[in-house]
Design a protein around this nucleic acid. Structure first.
Lengths: 199, 199
DNA sequence: ACCTGAACACCGTTCAAGT
DNA sequence: ACCTGAACACCGTTCAAGT
């Protein structure tokens, strides 16, 4: 039962998101819901981005036990590819991929999305970025990551995943599977420091 | 020398983006730069999103001399990125991208594609792969390419392009533009030999 | 049809002032 | 240190009014 202001703010924001995932978490809206002034909110979260990131992190951090990134027996490249594969596999192949595409199409492409739908999409995207960033942070800790902004690297990897998912929904043959493996490996290598080599 | 208001607005926006790619293209900023009222801007571009989409589409179309790969004055990375941009620009932004998506959906996803449609798709895909491979062959000639199968590298790059196109059809903000640039640069670097560096 | 500029309902951030 | 709320400098969109 946390009762300090910081927690009240986070709880208010999370609750609003729970009630309606498309809510706009503005300073005034969250502050009012938390029963706190905007200045007070700013005291704990100097920037709106910081607040949103903290909320998302809190919601998401339900650490998966079977996170491939923890498997330190494997090389950084192998682990990153395994994580990306996890993302890809959540959508699946064939009919499943086509169904996913169809849902996206109906929600965002067929008709101009409502503001609410747009916010919902951006929130989900933010979640995905956060997840990939957490993986990359582990590799960064190990010094395995190439220099560059974490967010840029995460978004690059997500773009590759998006491309693979789209291709899965389109016609293709068996060979696609092999290309996928190469593509994931290439994408991972673009983000990792050059391997020391088996010297 | 276009002098109608619509063009003035587009030119003002493109110029601002050219001077500083991170500029915020707000209604008032663009209108002021174009010497036009905000109401007038709204008359031609009913929504800010529409203005941004149009500007982006125009920028990518602007200079396509022919094949950017022939421009030996630029580094291999710059040329490869320019070529990939060409692919992306052919589909365009905003409504165009959404229209492209819709067409793909109707042809291949909504209903199981006929054998003929599948063959047509694979033929087009093969064409795209061939085109990218020709670009990569030039770089290979120059010794600028990282080791690996040409087809794998080509398909990797096309997956990235597909991902970008899908993201363009989905909701997004202006920041996407900056991420796109980084993503293309990262993708190109994954396929090129490490740059010699300005030592 | 084209164009203006004020007005509206929002933003995020800053800051003097209180406790 | 924590907290307030007004003030500032912005947004995008709407709209009556002009030409």
């Amino acid at each position: 039962m946390p009762h300090n202001t910081r927690d009240k703010i986070l709880i208010a924001a999370a609750t609003m998101l729970g009630e309606n995932p498309t809510t706009r978490l503005s300073v005034r809206a969250v502050a009012a819901r938390a029963g706190v002034s905007t200045g007070s909110l700013r005291h704990f979260f100097p920037t709106q981005r910081e607040l949103l990131d903290t909320v998302v992190a809190g919601i998401y951090d339900v650490d998966l036990p079977d996170d491939p990134m923890q498997d330190t027996a494997r090389t950084p490249g192998e682990r990153l590819v395994a994580c990306l594969r996890l993302l890809v596999s959540q959508v699946g192949t064939g009919d499943q991929a086509r169904e996913h595409w169809r849902a996206q199409h109906d929600a965002y492409v067929a008709a101009p999305p409502s503001e609410g739908a747009t916010h919902a999409f951006l929130a989900l995207e933010r979640l995905a970025v956060h997840r990939v960033e957490k993986w990359l942070a582990v590799l960064h800790e190990e010094g395995a990551l190439a220099p560059g902004a974490l967010e840029h690297q995460a978004r690059f990897l997500l773009t590759v995943v998006t491309g693979l998912l789209t291709e899965r929904a389109l016609p293709g043959d068996q060979a696609r599977l092999e290309f996928e493996a190469h593509t994931l490996a290439t994408a991972a290598s673009a983000v990792l420091r050059p391997a020391p080599g088996p010297a």
